[in-house]
């Protein structure tokens, strides 16, 4: 189709490391009857499963089309099944280039990562219970597969946490995340005020 944007393309064996934020949510482990903590995306609440690659899906027809005012984008998405992430679309697993950009984004969203959130109206995704305690977690994430690199960050096909920082003074959350995801996990309280 007409003006397909051709981006420079590079191939690499090294995963891209970038920055993300999550919510740590309590999940009841039905086998052990323990509460464990899992990561989920802040906005769409996608669950990041421990020790499993997260693969990006595209829901372009339901979400991006509604947002897009660019008719060409719509035509492109309806007409062709596309590789995720697609340059014309908004799909992919998002991460930002630096920690500063990450925190700027969330303060721009009027969200205070330091503030533990308490009530979440969960949840069709099987996360228990429907009123849960949690906190914000940020950290680095490995990205691989097909990736669109932007000036401020990335949209990637595959991702997994690289390390985690829990923004709450709660060892149980940090210990649980470390055990679940098997990555370096620490607690940081000062970060909250940046």
């Amino acid at each position: 189709m007409s003006k397909s944007k051709v981006l420079p393309h590079v191939v690499s064996e090294e995963p891209i490391i970038a920055w993300r934020m999550w919510q740590a949510v309590a999940v009841l482990n039905l086998f052990s009857d323990d509460i464990v903590y899992r990561l989920r995306a802040v906005s769409k609440h996608t669950e990041w499963k421990p020790r499993i690659t997260l693969k990006a899906d595209c829901f372009a027809l339901v979400s991006s089309l509604a947002k897009s005012s660019n008719r060409q984008v719509s035509v492109h998405l309806i007409g062709f099944k596309h590789q995720v992430p697609d340059i014309y679309c908004r799909c992919g697993i998002y991460a930002l280039r630096t920690k500063e950009k990450l925190f700027n984004y969330f303060t721009g969203m009027k969200m205070d990562p330091a503030k533990p959130w308490t009530v979440v109206s969960a949840n069709e995704r099987g996360i228990l219970p429907d009123r849960i305690m949690g906190c914000t977690v940020f950290g680095q994430v490995s990205l691989w597969g097909e990736i669109i690199e932007g000036e401020d960050g990335y949209r990637a096909e595959y991702a997994y946490p690289y390390d985690l920082t829990v923004l709450a003074d709660d060892r149980r959350i940090a210990d649980s995340l470390r055990e679940q995801y098997q990555v370096d996990t620490r607690i940081e309280l000062s970060q909250a005020h940046h």
Binding site: H9, V11, I87, G145, E149, G150
Partner: peptide
């Protein structure tokens, strides 16, 4: 979240 103006495509095969 916005990633800014697209700069390039990267294919990472770890």
């Amino acid at each position: 979240m916005e990633i800014g103006k697209p700069k390039r495509r990267i294919t990472v095969n770890p």
